[in-house]
């Protein structure tokens, strides 16, 4: 009798439940739409504002010359690198900081997950988490107060000059400090997710702990470490405040190649003096914004493609299939097309 009751109730409620499911689905879709709209709105806004300086004359009747924008080292202010140089400097600074932060983070993560005693593991992990949540301006202050004097002393010691410690190198160091916690945290997560049976198998084969860590744990977590690096790159590329406080905001052309020179990146140029800027000098920052968005989107797409490729290898799909997959598909498609034409 009881089961009969349950069935009758279930029948009554089933229609209601279906409606609720539908409603929830719409609510979720609506919320997702809002998020998508915000992103699209921001991009459109930056695009419209950023294209204006090239087309519409400002109060003084000036428009921005496109070739100057890209290449003239003295464009915008005297002694300002052209946009292309700034873009390269942004990528350059990010790459240099990654050279420091990626190995440091990987070994830091490996130490926390596999080497250090369990009792201090949680403390260290919490420490890294706190570091990851420290606002960038604090890192900037740290850079100004601590790193600048050190870099200045180091530069003098090797016979170079800096602007009171402000330099590309100081910026690189600050960015490295900022990205280490991010990359470390994600690396920790992926190293902890490595199947413990793999480590055991390695140990049972007579490998030492360190051999197991390098050959098994690092290898099995490489796609996770890479994901952390992508996040780190995102943070480094988009960082403005901390970088602006230490990098000096000057320099022309290829100056940035010498790490002891001051320079400006896309982000620091946008930020520095935005309060006083008027007319074209204000609007042009939006154009720089477009460039920054493009740089970030392109890097992310490329890195994600690379990451998917690595993940597929991890999952054991044959390498050669992935490498020539796209070309092969196009070829097959073309062959089919030619064949169809013939008939």
């Amino acid at each position: 009798m009881k089961s009969n009751n349950i069935q009758q109730n279930a029948l009554k409620k089933a229609n209601f439940k279906t409606k609720i499911d539908l409603l929830v689905k719409f609510i979720f879709a609506f919320l997702a739409l809002i998020c998508a709209c915000v992103v699209i709105f921001i991009v459109i806004f930056i695009l419209v504002k950023g294209i204006q300086p090239f087309i519409i004359p400002d109060g003084s009747g000036a428009t921005q010359n496109i070739s100057d924008f890209f290449l003239n080292p003295n464009w915008l202010y005297d002694g300002t690198g052209g946009m292309s140089y700034m873009m390269l400097a942004t990528i350059y600074v990010t790459l240099l900081s990654l050279i420091i932060s990626v190995p440091t983070s990987i070994f830091c993560g490996l130490f926390i997950v596999k080497v250090c005693p369990k009792s201090i593991k949680e403390i260290l992990k919490t420490g890294v988490q706190i570091l990851a949540s420290i606002p960038s301006v604090i890192f900037g202050l740290f850079g100004m107060g601590v790193l600048k004097p050190i870099v200045k002393g180091f530069a003098n010691a090797v016979g170079m000059q800096t602007f009171g410690g402000s330099s590309v190198l100081t910026g690189v160091l600050v960015l490295a400090f900022m990205t280490i916690p991010t990359i470390t945290l994600v690396s920790i997560t992926s190293m902890e997710a490595v199947d413990i049976n793999l480590s055991k198998a390695s140990l049972a084969l007579g490998a030492s702990n360190q051999q197991t860590n390098y050959k098994i744990v690092l290898k099995a977590s490489q796609s996770g470490i890479f994901a952390g690096t992508i996040l780190g790159i995102g943070r480094a590329l988009g960082e403005a405040t901390a970088l602006q406080m230490v990098i000096g905001n000057g320099g022309v052309g290829w100056d940035f190649l010498n790490v002891f020179n001051i320079y400006r990146t896309l982000t620091t140029t946008m930020l520095a003096g935005i309060g006083e800027a008027t007319g074209i000098k204000y609007d042009i920052r939006f154009s720089l914004g477009i460039v920054l968005i493009i740089v970030i989107v392109v890097t992310n797409i490329l890195l994600n493609l690379l990451k998917n490729y690595m993940t597929r290898i991890d999952k054991g799909e044959p390498k050669d299939k992935n490498k020539i997959g796209i070309i092969k598909n196009i070829k097959i498609y073309l062959e089919a097309y030619v064949h169809a034409k013939k008939n």
């Binding site: 049976n197 793999l198 198998a201 140990l203 084969l205 007579g206 030492s208 290898k219 099995a220």
Partner: peptide, 20 residues
Amino acid sequence: SIYLRTRVGMVFQQPNPFPM
């Protein structure tokens, strides 16, 4: 123990080949 494990091999319950 490292030497002992080269003399005494072990096969586990779940097949656990390395991802290589």
